[in-house]
């Protein structure tokens, strides 16, 4: 890990085609992207697919990636959010490639059960469905602030919109979610993500 130049130096090096630098970025962030994908897909195989596609997109679209406070993680979270919502369309570009990657032999139902056991990552089926009803951008904004603890300003930067626009949209998105869930949402994730066991 090239810690001497920090992530933004490593990202710059990636842009020139430095393979080691790009792999450093992968090593740095893949688990957090995976955990986020797991929240939204609730299935280990799907989360692995989303993570793979997110990093392949990071390379394909590297010149237009928005770096927020020196990091590409917010961009990865936004991308993973979009991919999780559109599993068929988002992944088709990479489907053949991802299909060649070896997996632990886990049946689909067992992959769901594995997620159920991961308390801290569960967000509950209703929250997941309510997120699915929002626009991509609103879902990404909520994901960045509610689950990943970025500030509204950082979330705005990740999406390329103004602070003001982000705050307005966050407020509206939270109201919509609250209506869909039939209760009020306090503005941080600790309260909303601990669901009662079903």
């Amino acid at each position: 890990m090239r810690s001497s130049r920090g992530e933004s130096g490593t990202w710059d090096a990636s842009l020139t085609g430095d393979v080691d630098a790009f792999v450093d970025i992968f090593d740095l962030h893949h688990n957090r992207v995976y955990r986020h994908a797991l929240r939204l897909t609730a299935n280990v195989h799907d989360a692995e697919d989303v993570t793979a596609a997110a990093f392949l997109e990071l390379w394909r679209r590297r010149r237009s990636v928005r770096v927020v406070d020196g990091s590409v993680l917010p961009w990865l979270i936004v991308t993973a959010t979009n991919l999780s919502r559109n599993l068929v369309r988002g992944l088709h570009r990479y489907r053949a490639l991802i299909a060649t990657l070896p997996r632990a032999e886990v049946a689909d139902s067992a992959a769901d059960i594995a997620v159920e056991r991961i308390e801290e990552e569960r967000i509950g089926e209703e929250v997941r469905q309510a997120l699915g009803a929002l626009s991509s951008a609103d879902a990404a904004l909520l994901a960045l602030t509610m689950f990943e603890h970025y500030s509204p300003a950082q979330a705005a930067a990740a999406l390329g919109i103004s602070d003001g626009a982000a705050r307005t949209r966050l407020h509206r998105a939270r109201s919509r979610m609250a209506t869909a869930l039939g209760r009020s949402l306090v503005g941080d994730c600790e309260t909303t993500t601990k669901e009662e066991p079903r």
């Binding site: 992968f26 893949h30 688990n31 955990r35 993570t51 990657l101 070896p102």
Partner: peptide
């Protein structure tokens, strides 16, 4: 902290390289 399956991770890393 939960981590992605190491076999899948290693293979994905190679694909990215």
């Amino acid at each position: 902290m939960l981590e992605m399956d190491p076999v899948f991770t290693a293979a994905l890393r190679e694909v990215l390289v």
